[in-house]
């Protein structure tokens, strides 16, 4: 009886020991793989995911590394990452500088994906966000040097939408215009054609994963002029209207410059919330309502005005 009790104890002891040994060994393996997996979540800047890939975190859970997208890409731009590359092993990517996405209208790579790691809801390639082009080096960009290279702008599949040329004075020559290529994130698909097209030895415009390329406003930030437009009028007291001391018969208006004619009527001018440099986002200057919170200019002259 006593010996059977002893052997049962020994068996239990052995079982606990075996379990602990197994848990320890497998736990070490898990720790190693887990830490490696954490590192592998960081996508290097030059590797761009195919269209419809979503965030890297989601993609690495959804992509089963089958390579169907690679096979169905008619331009053979996609590759599966090898273990020695700093991209999660077996996942698809392309490199803009050597082979950008040709933006097929039927998006065969997305259709080929069996898991939806490339989102099947993406049916308009212009809505894909593979990455975001950034004109990263203004010191070497030929357009910034005052030349008319324009190649990135010309090769952009969404010319005049994803890349526009913004004109400004060339201070160096004093008589020419600089045609600055500007990327608009609300249109850029990250196809990489601009980076591929850039004529420099090393491209001045590059496509990065959106997470690396895009800034983000604080959640609580509000763009004053957008809020004003939404509300249909200023939400804060207008600034003191700028007075220009002009010769008789001359007037100056922001944006329009100098002209001859009577001075503008007070209150019809623009307040400081107006875009300083009217471009794509320029909103027409509306009339400033007089019953604004804070009481407007006259009441702010006194100390008892609400602030």
């Amino acid at each position: 009886m006593d010996s059977s009790k002893k052997s049962a104890l020994a068996a239990r002891r052995q079982f606990l020991l075996d379990s602990a040994r197994m848990a320890g060994g497998v736990g070490m393996l898990g720790l190693g793989v887990g830490l490696y997996a954490k590192q592998a979540k960081a996508l290097p800047p030059a590797a761009i995911r195919p269209p419809g890939a979503g965030t890297e975190q989601d993609f690495l859970g959804a992509c089963i590394r089958c390579g169907m997208c690679v096979r169905d890409c008619p331009y053979n731009i996609l590759f599966l990452a090898k273990p020695e590359q700093p991209i999660a092993t077996g996942t698809p990517y392309f490199v803009s500088r050597t082979g950008p996405c040709e933006m097929c209208e039927d998006i065969p790579c997305v259709k080929a994906c069996p898991t939806g790691a490339l989102d099947h809801k993406l049916t308009d390639i212009a809505k894909s966000r593979m990455g975001l082009a950034v004109l990263i080096d203004k010191e070497t960009c030929l357009n910034f040097l005052g030349l008319r290279c324009d190649v990135c702008y010309r090769v952009c599949p969404l010319i005049d939408k994803a890349i526009t040329l913004e004109l400004r004075h060339n201070e160096r020559t004093g008589k020419h215009t600089i045609f600055e290529p500007v990327v608009h994130s609300d249109q850029c698909t990250g196809c990489g054609k601009c980076e591929k097209g850039c004529v420099l030895e090393v491209a001045a415009i590059k496509v990065y994963p959106v997470k690396l390329a895009k800034g983000e406003l604080g959640q609580h930030y509000r763009i004053g002029w957008e809020e004003k437009q939404k509300a249909g009028g200023s939400l804060v007291a207008p600034e003191v209207e700028h007075q220009y001391n002009m010769p008789e018969g001359m007037r100056y208006e922001h944006g329009k410059g100098l002209s001859s004619g009577p001075a503008p009527t007070p209150g019809a001018g623009v307040d400081s919330l107006q875009v300083p440099n009217p471009g794509r986002n320029a909103a027409p200057a509306g009339n400033i309502p007089q019953n604004i919170p804070g009481g407007g200019l006259s009441s702010r002259m006194t100390d008892d005005a609400p602030r």
């Binding site: 848990a23 393996l29 793989v33 887990g34 997996a37 690495l60 859970g61 999660a88």
Partner: peptide, 21 residues
Amino acid sequence: WILALTLLLAGITGTLAWELV
């Protein structure tokens, strides 16, 4: 045990961690 571990890793990391190795 390793099979259970791979599933646990997938759950914790949210990625197909075992596929890396």
